[in-house]
Design a protein around this nucleic acid. Structure first.
Length: 435
RNA sequence: GGGGGGAUACCGAAGCGGUCAAACGGGGCAGACUGUAAAUCUGUUGGCUCAGCCUUCGGAGGUUCGAAUCCUCCUCCCCCCA
């Protein structure tokens, strides 16, 4: 340890810097510095949108600095107005604590909280210091140092107060930046934390913090800010969302197979950016990968490398392997015949991440209308109408063979005597088990 | 407290007495093309026992042969003045 690497430079070549406060780089080179990222505990799991912040902390630790993950128990009860057009629902304390627990577990896959090193990672919850801070104390000791004029100048506020705002802004939301700013002040004083990082949308909130530190503690007290660009998709869509919602780190919410598939499906353009952000591969390694990928784009080396790296880190080597073998069977040249030749154990492991449904043997033998089977039973469609439509569009397969609306499900369709594979389009699979 | 504006399907937004299950855009889904990519093109996007029927346009009533469209009351939101 003791070796300090150039943290800012590392993030820079990875394209992870949107904005840095002047002299931040100098500070980070002086010696071990603590830096933090705030995480909203809106759920008991992180999703991949959180991953950028987590990676920043990871790089911070690698560079020899001390990462602090701040779970925003208190701020999470308020809701950050940045980037939101409407106020959010408030969370109860019980929910917050449960969420904190889940987040903590996931973070430890990335950060070293355990070792006996000086820059061991630390997890804090701002609820613990905000809880007993009375309103009167707060406005007297903190609110005093920041003018409303200053707060109103922030984009996050202007957007909500301007004429085109649709819902106005509550005092609670308005106070948000000050509460977050106080977090920074608190960590500065108690953890000697001099840096706050976050997404580009956090710049305003972070600088309220550095401003507060300067005004309350005096000008010799300098705190720093660094933000990374908001992760986007080349086509303008939201990063980290799919039809079925967020991509979570929790395997209960997003199976390792889906997780792997998400990264594998990233576009070429995005893959080049993502691999720098979400893996720890070195510059030269990434340069080579990009070069190789361009020579044979159809092999999708970038996507595969990216997906592998993250899946193993978040899940495990084993999960990665079963995800790839499942992908192999589902997207490879597999045919109905091949499906039939797979033994039950393999079949089940392949479809571990695929939605499954059950149907009784009795019901099956009595004969079941195709539409009902596809929608109500298999769960592939929300309504019979949708199933009908998809059949018309030639988008439904059973056991990898396209079917028409006059198809009759029978015992001949059973794989291993009890499974039927329903497929909607190319990528959506559903496994029905006949018991 | 006063005045004005608004609430339409996943989102944005038309419609202002029948031809409205509701234009248009975005998003979603599917098909073609491909590399399980992007771009593009096409179809589709309330439900059903689907060429017919049923339930929808903030809520409750009313006018009318007929209402998302008119009237009354209610709820919620925004803006301006005090």
């Amino acid at each position: 340890m003791g070796d300090i690497k150039n943290f800012v430079e590392e993030l820079r070549w990875r394209g992870m810097i949107h904005d840095v406060m002047p002299e931040t780089e100098e500070q980070m080179l002086k010696g071990m510095t603590a830096g933090y990222v705030g995480i909203d505990p809106t759920a008991d799991s992180l999703h991949i949108g959180h991953l950028v912040g987590v990676m920043m902390l990871k790089h911070l630790q690698i560079a020899g600095h001390k990462p602090i993950a701040l779970v925003g128990g208190a701020t999470g009860m308020i809701g950050d107005p940045s980037g939101k057009s409407a106020e959010r629902n408030l969370l109860s304390e019980a929910e917050l604590r449960k969420n904190e627990e889940g987040i903590k577990n996931q973070l430890s896959k990335f950060l070293d909280f355990e070792s006996d090193i000086p820059n061991r990672a630390k997890l804090v919850n701002n609820y613990d210091w905000m809880r007993d801070f009375s309103f009167l104390e707060f406005i007297r000791d903190i609110g005093k140092h920041i003018t409303v004029n200053y707060m109103m100048a922030k984009d996050s506020v202007k957007k909500r107060i301007g004429a085109d705002s649709k819902s106005g802004m509550s005092f609670t939301e308005f106070s948000y930046q000050l509460v977050q700013g106080y977090d920074f002040l608190y960590l500065y004083e108690h953890e000697n934390c001099k840096l706050q990082m976050g997404g580009a949308d956090q710049w305003g909130n972070i600088t309220t913090g550095t401003e507060l530190i300067r005004r309350k503690l005096g000008h010799e007290n300098n705190a720093f800010a660094l933000t990374c660009p908001l992760i986007t998709k080349a086509d303008g869509g939201k990063f980290g969302k799919t039809e079925s919602g967020n991509i979570w780190l929790d395997p209960q919410r997003t199976s390792p197979y889906e997780f792997y598939q998400f990264w594998l499906n990233v576009s070429d353009e995005d893959a080049e950016r993502y691999i720098k952000i979400f893996t720890l591969l070195s510059g030269p390694e990434i340069g080579n990968l990009i070069k190789e990928h361009k020579e044979a784009p159809h092999l999708r080396l970038l996507q595969k490398t990216l997906a592998k790296d993250i899946t193993i880190r978040v899940h495990s080597q084993k999960d990665y392997e079963s995800a790839t073998s499942a992908s192999e069977i589902l997207f490879g040249k597999a045919t109905t015949g091949m499906l039939r030749s797979i033994d039950e154990k393999t079949l089940l492991s392949v479809f571990k991440g695929v939605p499954q449904a059950e149907i009784s043997k009795q019901e099956f033998e009595d004969g079941i209308p195709l539409l009902e089977f596809l929608s109500a039973k298999a769960g592939a469609f929300k309504s019979n109408g949708e199933a009908r439509r998809m059949l018309r569009e030639n988008g439904v397969s059973i056991n990898k063979s396209k079917i028409k609306d006059d198809y009759i499900i029978s015992g001949a369709d059973l794989l291993n005597d009890k499974y039927i594979l329903v497929q909607k389009g190319k990528k959506n699979y559903f496994l029905v088990k006949v018991l």
